[in-house]
Write a protein that binds this DNA or RNA. Structure first.
Lengths: 331, 331
DNA sequence: GACGCCGGTGCAACCGGTTGCACTGTGCGA
DNA sequence: TCGCACAGTGCAACCGGTTGCACCGGCGTC
């Protein structure tokens, strides 16, 4: 079915090497030979088999894109950016959905079987040992949206979640809120822990009254359920939600309880996903610079193709407040 | 770096064939040999190279998952289901983002270079010739969410968009709406054309007054912009929107104009994406049976692995109304 | 005119597997 | 006891490419 090197060589009247070199950038072929080969290839509809060549070159240009987050709408933006950025660099994303997989070893085995050149783990909720498993298997790996660390085990590209927590607390203080709450995502996620830690720390420093609780997941339903519980008791004046989708759930709960945002309760999210800007939501939030993070992640994995032993580093991008309609104006 | 067959064979004291057969289900190996091989493999951390074996078997278990739709939140659900369904069957999705690609030939070349066993084109807005290009290149292909046809050029799995249009019209009529409108997605998309055709046809049959217009894209912003325009003139009593995300944009526009849904204007969407069920949206919509469509798409592509010449067929799944809060009760 | 250099080419080995075929040894029935 | 079937094994060729090396011819230089 598929046309091979050999057939092209025969038709062009040259050796297989000549054909191979014609399709290898930088190889030495005369203009005459190249012309003959290209003509024959065009007639036959030949295109080189990338997998066969990977056998000798050791490069597949396949990158494992691993995530467990297929329910948070921001991940559609994440996948869009990753696939485009990878494609621009001639790399191909092999998508791995970890939703019902807890065992890192299985993913490692699968991605090794496919000789991926590298792996990008895109998740803020996966435990760090997941990425480490790839490194131990000798596969270049970067953990996007991973936990900040001064001496990381693997390359990490992301944000400083502790600092985001502080930033949220400062912002709420500026708006004159005195009793505030943190409505976090899953308690075991490092991102939740860090955001909480920064928030609590800064509240203490500034002198805000601060409570906290957790939703089961980074999801609308979980955010809504938790906020329904909170408003039924004695809610804080404002909440820092662990994530935008959680915020939107919370927003829904607050309005359903007959309260108004930001008049009765203020809300600040994190991520700045597209939906946060929708006019019927208009969420004030902390913007995570997605495309920078993703661009840097791909850059890093590309670097590692040539320097697999590159010492792990953690690159952190600054976040900023995006002002919309869910916090009252500075007092 | 990677452990090979040969090393395992040496360590186990057997031939390379024996090792190969140990890892080939159904091959004939004695228990004794198998044990030796498995021990050696475990010690060395061997896992077979799927790409190398694909050279002789002709199977990579790679499936190209091609889409141009990375902005409609329903596609996160689509990708989630596709990746999980493929993984369950031992297949690996190679994700291709067509967002800035208009030339089918490029995608064909790329996916041929990677010897994918098959391709799934997941899009309701891509022209049909896109999927046809894969078939012509000899790659098994199914077009998910493609256009219904009695004699399709490629395998199509999806819904009957014309019938959805009729269903929307009938539903609006039942609720006593007399002047209705179709707010479609991009005019050139076949899904838009078909939904419109069915809607207009049924309106005429029933005797509803019917107008229509189009948004630039299946997006919140486009739906909102178009509905803002409509409410500024003399809006219909109810609208059938080409898609849920468009409906949510329209909903936002209607409320911003100071009108109420469903009291002043009724709205029905299409898809039933997760967000449509969020309590702060609560969109009445036509449910597209996503997981059935995706399950059937994967089944079909799997069938074609063994029967590439399977005559193209079109499988259509029934849609149903999901009643929520954006249409008034039956009169 | 002899020499050396060098771009261009083909041969053959190799990448990591699979598989048809021939051969061996074992167990069973006659 | 012999013959036979058959499971188990290894050899070697092959899948579709790449690449080190040897070789060839043409050119510029002395």
């Amino acid at each position: 079915m598929a046309v091979t090197l050999r057939e092209v060589a025969q038709r062009a009247g040259v050796s297989r090497s000549a054909v191979s070199r014609t399709f290898t950038p930088g190889a030495s072929v005369s203009a005459r030979t190249r012309a003959k080969v290209e003509e024959a290839a065009a007639e036959l509809g030949y295109s080189p088999n990338a997998l066969a060549s990977s056998l000798t070159t050791g490069r597949t240009k396949l990158i494992g894109l691993v995530s467990n987050n297929f329910h948070n709408p921001i991940f559609l933006e994440v996948f869009d950016l990753f696939t485009r950025t990878l494609q621009e660099r001639g790399l191909k994303p092999l998508l791995v959905n970890l939703t019902d997989e807890t065992e890192a070893a299985n993913s490692v085995r699968m991605l090794r079987a496919y000789s991926v050149d590298g792996v990008i783990v895109a998740s803020s909720t996966l435990p760090p040992n997941f990425a480490v498993a790839f490194r131990e298997a000798g596969i270049p790996v970067v953990h996007s949206f991973g936990r900040r660390s001064d001496a990381p085990d693997v390359h990490v590209i992301g944000i400083d979640n502790v600092e985001c927590g502080r930033m949220a607390a400062r912002t709420l203080a500026e708006r004159g809120y005195r009793t505030v709450g943190f409505l976090g995502g899953p308690e075991e996620a490092t991102s939740t822990q860090d955001r909480l830690a920064g928030f609590v720390e800064e509240c203490a420093r500034i002198g805000l009254n601060c409570t906290h609780s957790f939703a089961d997941a980074y999801s609308f339903a979980a955010g809504r359920a938790e906020m329904l519980r909170l408003v039924a008791e004695s809610p804080a004046e404002a909440y820092f939600c662990g994530d935008d989708v959680l915020s939107i759930g919370a927003l829904s709960a607050i309005r359903e309880a007959g309260l108004r945002v930001p008049d009765n309760i203020g809300l600040i999210g994190l991520n700045d996903m597209e939906m946060a800007g929708w006019e019927n939501i208009s969420l004030t939030t902390i913007k995570q610079p997605l495309s920078e993070i993703i661009g840097a992640s791909v850059d890093r994995v590309v670097q590692m193709l040539d320097a697999p032993a590159l010492p792990p580093r953690c690159d952190i991008f600054r976040c900023e407040i995006v002002e919309r309609g869910t916090l009252r104006a500075p007092s």
